[in-house]
Nucleic acid binder design. Structure first.
Lengths: 589, 589
DNA sequence: ATGTGGGCCTACCGCCGACAA
DNA sequence: TTGTCGGCGGTAGGCCCACAT
């Protein structure tokens, strides 16, 4: 496989795609170099099973590999821009797969986010309030690539932040991963405690740390959250270790090239190593359900990466909220066909959270009552927590001095859209969102269409199937998922007709462990892709009522249907057919 | 104003838009006919406040009015096809407005519907079940233009159908409105009672009438619902009044030109009469909140029209369902700025339910408790109903012989998306959906991504503010709306940042009565459009964070930004800017 | 009066090698 | 090795009229 960040030429309408030589030789079928201009047609399937066809030609002086015909359509349909990346992967049987990874665009403020995602609107907010008051379950869908929230982070980072406290004058460091894969850090001093954004959310009781960076030219945001930093060993003395003119590039907002997101050191030749490959994927859950046995240590780091580099990206990442009453569980006999699910499951995990896709529902084994029963053992622990860890939790005291705060956003979704779940705890159900007075609530809701949602932390209570790690307040496992089978992502991705899932969580877990796959190709064993293909086709063809099959690159056909020349009623019919196809594409792209 | 159904030439990429002469003279600013080819630039705002610019030229031999430059962009952006219609309206101040009305496309099966609208999926379904079991409020958003449901009909038709019963062998007639505005009718004989669709919903307990049509060549569906037909005076004798080879055109599915939806008799010249104009609007609530004083008689007829002509269009029209617990009501102090709301309100009402738009939330005056209190007087009436009117209610007996069926889908939304509301009745809360066994529920949910939803009838209980008509079970009024302020349409239309509403329902009602407006222009009095404009701009500009203003027809500028020629980081930025604009368009169009 | 089609110009898409970094 | 550019041909968009209904 190979991955290439697209150049301006690649995405320009002027030309095609310049394939790195090594990549073409490794990944594409060999060409007959005896010919004057050897060429072939490549067919690659994307994440959604759609076929993309490209003309692969070896020409020019000096010779180089190019993708010409078909490439432009791909760029347009995927809305790729310079800085995005494409990824090609060849399986053992020669089948090609491809995916895209979009660059982390600097969003134009939060309003942009609210356009990309289903915003957390007033109705959703009411749902959450209702769910909490009713002690019922609700879900938050979060796409870390479409938008980033300051306050949705790997829970282990949050727990870790409780281990130390900050006070004014304290020195701190902020780790980050630089482009040469070495660890770098910024340092600074805490100057105070402040509101997160006095302008946009004036009067908010959410507090952040005001800091001054040692690195003067770093125009980073001067507000950080405690989990973003850690105390430095040296004490106080503001400009002691000041390092003016850091040799590192600034990584703030003005950076045009998203190289921090695409580590330079990882080129095409490095891709064979899966461990390195994982680091390329941005904001995507890599380990997913494998956190089953070691939840705490395997939590993803994506939020920390993003938040360090975009400290002022406060846009809410909440995609949608569905309020599901706990007694709303439908008959547990319901079962989807799970054929080949692990295929697409794996496939989705490889790609980042940028491409919207069907959120595969996961049925849980136990009923919701199990979760409720488990509240009892979990509650004292959580309650004790906020008492003993006196560190930065004082930042929250303005919410409610009697609060037992037990937030733990769980990140463990098989989909590209991460799923958070919250199970209210009747014994420790004092949630920050609870303690906002009504006036505060209104201001938050009406202030902006996008929603600043520090309140969306959920009390995550461990289930009764303990023994996952040393800590009791572990990070959730399969069998404590809650009734996620009832939750379907709203917003961009329309649920397709077939939504495969597993009959039991055990089945899911075992299948995840049994194979390690990438793009549907096994990385550890021989592939058996037939099942997956069937599933894909089934799901897609049902959309068009069998009128067409998903197929791209019409220009390879002898002649596309002449829409313009058809007349009368047939004209409309042709248009409708195209419309249906475009709808399928729009959903899939 | 004028309205024109688009021809193939109008929507072809080859040319522009041919403006009817009378329309151009009446609606567009006058041209200087002394010139060789007089032309001018027209600027028209659409429903969402977006400006569209067209070059209006008077040329050709013979001379005719044309819209050239800018028209193609409009067609593409709006995805207009032949058969759709555009509507231009000029205000007193010369400001132009325009809207579109899409033809009623024959959808390619139900899966198409589920793509267009937010389908009634399993999660939504669970919400409804939950809401009913909790006796709480839920809302159903229904777009009669995007899809049609067999079972969402004007309630007066349902009531009327209870007046007579059908039995096998009975003759019936089905009225319809033919293209020459005369009333026509089909006749037939009842042959039995059947499931609605044994294939797609096998085992469903919902029953329809099996019929045989006298008109042999009419390939209509042989299943009708009781409210679609009425008993004929003549009795039995199957082929007695058979009329072979009806001179009327068949109005079944094969009809390519949707002339039945656009009555031929209504041309541009007829548009001045508002009464006629109303008939042009398809499936749109015309009278809306004015049904306050005469609900029964002013209910819209749209469903009957559609269902008669598309008897086999069983696609669910449910756009989305939001489950709002009745105790979820947020602080009643919340109030949006209602400035100019009646403007857009009226504007939306004029256009049909095709263009998605923000669903303006309507706050109700009384609290939810008022509705609950009114259950008591309403319930006996409803209960008595199903007992005394023994007609076709026997069709429902398979649901629950002890049911008190009191359905009354209320159609009274200010938005283009009709809103149905259901308030469960503790005294008569036996709802069809209630009595499906769980197996049935699952089958329905899994059968198709689109949802056959006869169960979505709501028990509509009259409020305590009686005196609306002679019948106690009237059709709902403003003050029995329920907490609709909490419900925002999901699906296509993203809620914009500003969602104006009225502080009290009385305020809404009075403002609706005080002015009769079309496209924001007053039809009865002098316009005061300033407030509306401000509101529009506010809502839209917040999307782009002030980076741009909604503006179309860039080709009128001296030179559009050369995206292709820009390089480096600026390239990406330009692309992003365009992307933002396109997003705004995509939402608005 | 106006829908449709041909003529024709132009813009841009997209394939090519040249050239340079 | 590969990113960008000029060249250039093909196609489609779009403005014009003629002609037909």
């Amino acid at each position: 496989m190979f991955c290439k960040t697209l150049t301006a030429s690649d995405t320009s309408t002027h030309g095609g795609f310049s394939v790195p030589r090594r990549a073409a030789e490794d990944c594409f079928p060999p060409l007959d170099y005896n010919q004057q201009r050897p060429s072939q047609e490549l067919v690659a399937k994307d994440l959604h099973g759609l076929e993309w066809r490209f003309r692969h030609i070896y020409r020019g002086q000096p010779r180089r590999h190019l993708l010409t015909t078909g490439w432009s359509a791909f760029v347009n349909k995927k809305k790729l821009v310079s800085g995005d990346a494409v990824l090609f992967l060849r399986g053992e049987n020669g089948e090609l797969r491809l995916g895209i990874r979009r660059a982390a665009h600097i969003k134009n403020g939060t309003s942009f986010h609210s356009l990309c995602t289903q915003p957390l609107n007033r109705s959703n907010f009411a749902d959450v309030v209702h769910a909490i008051s009713m002690k019922s379950v609700f879900s938050i869908y979060y796409n870390p690539r479409a938008s980033s929230s300051e306050f949705i982070i790997p829970v282990h980072k949050f727990w870790k932040s409780l281990d130390h406290s900050f006070s004014v004058g304290m020195r701190f460091k902020m780790r980050f991963e630089s482009e040469d894969a070495a660890e770098g850090r910024y340092t600074g001093v805490v100057t105070g405690i402040s509101e997160m954004d006095p302008v946009r959310w004036s009067g908010s009781k959410w507090r952040c740390l005001l800091v001054r960076w040692d690195d003067i030219d770093a125009n980073r945001h001067n507000r950080v959250s405690p989990w973003e930093i850690e105390p430095s060993s040296s004490i106080s003395s503001s400009n002691s270790s000041l390092s003016p003119g850091s040799k590192r590039n600034r990584v703030g907002l003005p950076s045009g090239k998203p190289e921090f997101m695409v580590p330079e050191g990882i080129g095409a030749s490095d891709f064979g190593e899966s461990l390195r490959f994982q680091k390329v994927l941005q904001g995507q859950e890599i380990l997913g359900f494998n956190t089953h046995h070691d939840g705490a240590n395997s939590q993803i780091m994506h939020r920390s990466e993003i938040s360090r580099r975009f400290p002022c990206s406060n846009g809410s990442g909440i995609a949608a909220i569905r309020n599901i009453g706990r007694d709303t569980l439908v008959n547990p006999d319901i079962s989807y066909k799970g054929v080949g699910f692990e295929e697409s499951f794996r496939f989705q995990k490889v790609l980042q959270g940028q491409e919207t896709s069907v959120s595969p529902p996961c049925r849980r084994g136990p009923t919701a009552d199990d979760t409720r029963e488990s509240d009892s053992p979990g509650a004292p622990d959580v309650g004790q927590l906020s008492g003993t860890r006196s560190g930065w939790s004082s930042l929250m005291q303005s919410y409610n001095t009697h609060s037992h705060i037990g937030p733990s956003a769980q990140v463990s979704s098989p989909s590209s859209v991460l799923k958070f779940q919250h199970v209210s705890n009747p014994f420790a159900n004092v949630n920050p969102i609870h303690n906002l007075n009504s006036q505060e609530k209104e201001r938050r809701v009406h202030k902006s269409s996008s929603f600043h949602a520090p309140e969306t932390y959920g009390d995550r209570i461990p289930s009764s199937t303990g023994g996952h790690g040393s800590r009791r307040r572990h990070l959730g496992s399969l069998d404590s998922f809650g009734p996620s089978a009832d939750t379907v992502q709203l917003g961009d991705s329309q649920p397709l007709s077939a939504q495969p899932t597993f009959r039991t969580s055990q089945e899911l877990a075992s299948s995840c462990k049994s194979s390690c796959r990438l793009f549907g190709f096994s990385l550890t064993e021989g592939g058996h892709d037939a099942a997956k293909e069937d599933n894909m086709v089934q799901a897609t063809s049902s959309l068009g009522a069998g009128a067409f099959l998903p197929r791209i690159g019409e220009q390879f056909n002898t002649q596309p249907p002449a829409v313009t020349n058809t007349v009368g009623s047939s004209y409309t019919k042709v248009s409708n057919l195209y419309a249906v196809r475009d709808i399928v594409y729009d959903i899939a792209l």
